[in-house]
């Protein structure tokens, strides 16, 4: 935070005001009634994705492509929704949820399958698939899913105006949509899985000592498939809830980097479900606070991202320094 202050000083802004704007305004400021629901809206996808990622990260399986899975989830979900338009029925939304989950899952299964079958690196493949998904998104919003009544503007029909498909606030104006509920369920589910279930134990053992995991009877192939699949599924859900709720439509720039920020959230929360819940809240706070700082103080958007990066960097450095002592000079060869 100190270095963040320095950064803001370097940009010619009052550091105290900047930090106050980022952390205080959204919660207790004049317009907090508007920002508080936003906190849930921004936090839910982060938490949802981060929970999924943390399962894999704990086991040493690095799914970096949550952004792509998020996009695919949104596309699949929206696709199902749009296919039914304008038919109103209660089952449209659950069907969209399933489709969204499937979309994320299948996108994550590509790197997972390639890894177990051919030993490819899941980091690389999942990351590259993000760019494929982005192109896919662009093509969809300009082509197949373009709103026929949209006067040629890119982007799909707005799902907010299609009642059966709209992921509305459960309580008006609270920001509490189904994605928030799903995120909370995911937190509880992950907590129980990791502490009580055989599979969670297998994940933890694999992360700590892969040979011991193998010795105890963990099947590494199945574990990779499960962890990748689970993180993809949750990312897909997050994308679907976003597109049918706060975003409302498929557009070229639909994705705003939740999938990547979720990696920060997962580590900020120490890969622990409850920690992730808190970290998701904190990250959402910096997002919203950053937006406010942008409009009120004229801070560049990039400065906020640098600030978020610093947060993670210092946290990880702290972790490192509490475990290891810094030694200057060259290491001794014995």
């Amino acid at each position: 935070m100190f270095f963040g202050g320095l950064l803001f000083v370097a940009l010619g802004k009052d550091p105290v005001a900047a930090i106050r704007t980022i952390f205080y305004e959204p919660l207790f400021g004049q317009y907090a009634f508007y920002y508080r629901p936003q906190l849930l809206v921004k936090g839910a996808p982060l938490v949802l994705i981060a929970i999924g990622l943390s399962l894999g990260f704990k086991a040493g399986i690095w799914n970096i492509g949550a952004e792509g899975q998020y996009i695919m989830g949104a596309l699949f979900g929206a696709g199902v929704g749009l296919a039914f338009y304008p038919y109103e029925a209660w089952f449209v939304f659950p069907l969209m949820v399933a489709a969204g989950a499937f979309g994320g899952w299948i996108w994550a299964m590509i790197p997972a399958f390639l890894k177990v079958r051919f030993g490819t690196n899941e980091i690389l493949v999942s990351l590259m698939l993000v760019y494929v998904a982005e192109q896919f998104l662009a093509s969809m919003s300009l082509g197949l899913m373009k709103n026929p009544e949209g006067f040629g503007f890119p982007g799909s029909r707005n799902l907010q105006q299609y009642e059966s498909a709209f992921n509305a606030d459960l309580i008006e104006g609270s920001g509490m949509h189904w994605g928030v509920v799903a995120a909370l369920i995911a937190v509880i589910f992950a907590y129980v899985l990791l502490s009580k279930h055989r599979l969670g134990f297998a994940i933890r053992v694999t992360g700590e000592a892969p040979r011991a995991a193998r010795f105890s009877g963990v099947n590494p192939v199945r574990l990779v498939l499960f962890c990748m699949g689970m993180s993809g599924l949750l990312a897909g859900l997050a994308g679907m809830f976003e597109v049918s709720g706060p975003a409302g439509q498929v557009t070229i720039d639909f994705n705003v980097g939740y999938g990547f920020t979720a990696i920060i959230v997962a580590f900020l929360g120490r890969l622990h479900p409850v920690g992730i819940l808190l970290a998701g809240g904190l990250m959402a706070l910096t997002y919203i606070g950053g937006d406010i700082a942008q409009s009120q103080l004229g801070l560049p958007a990039a400065a906020i991202q640098v600030f978020q990066g610093m947060l993670l960097f210092f946290l990880l450095a702290l972790d490192m320094l509490t475990h290891y002592r810094l030694r200057f000079g060259t290491a001794e060869v014995v």
């Binding site: 053992v205 700590e208 000592a209 040979r211 011991a212 010795f215």
Partner: peptide
């Protein structure tokens, strides 16, 4: 350590 037992567990 690391095969018969997990060190940090």
């Amino acid at each position: 350590l690391g095969h018969a037992a997990v060190p940090d567990m």
